[in-house]
């Protein structure tokens, strides 16, 4: 299961951030369903050849953002989306990140409608992947 996580040391993003983002993307795309078990920290660390603390930190952050839950003794599982807390700070950060994308698109000469349809297209891909995984 850990095969689809690929980390690149020497990148701008710390390794734990890369793991968090890839797991998050997998959950969003439906590649990981609610209740799926994530590989144990030690197994993940051994496969990716990283410090187990790094893997543990990634899992902690995922848990803090409500994407996963940890049951002592059993492992880490993908959490029920309904139980996720919607942290307004996270959403604010998110909307600021959107500004960067919007600015770049506008500077490339795209029209607002084009930007919206491009966004819709990418979003549809996530739903499609989710459907095909079912």
């Amino acid at each position: 299961m850990a095969l689809w996580i690929q980390i690149t040391p020497g990148s701008d993003e710390p390794i734990y951030v890369q793991i968090v983002e890839q797991v998050g993307e997998a959950i969003a795309k439906g590649q990981l369903a609610v209740g799926d078990k994530l590989p144990p920290v030690r197994k993940l660390a051994a496969e990716l050849v990283i410090n187990p603390n790094t893997a543990a930190r990634a899992y902690t952050i995922l848990e803090q953002s409500g994407l996963v839950t940890t049951k002592t003794g059993s492992g880490t599982f993908v959490a029920d989306p309904k139980l996720r807390s919607k942290d307004t700070t996270d959403i604010n950060i998110l909307s600021e990140r959107m500004d960067t994308l919007i600015a770049r698109s506008l500077n490339l000469g795209m029209e607002p409608e084009d930007i919206i349809s491009m966004f819709k297209g990418r979003l549809a891909k996530f739903a499609k992947t989710k459907k095909s995984e079912r």
Binding site: P9, G10, P14, I15, V49, I50, N51, N53, T54
Partner: peptide, 10 residues
Amino acid sequence: ILGDVERVAD
């Protein structure tokens, strides 16, 4: 090799 250090060190 900072890449190695980043992988393994805490």
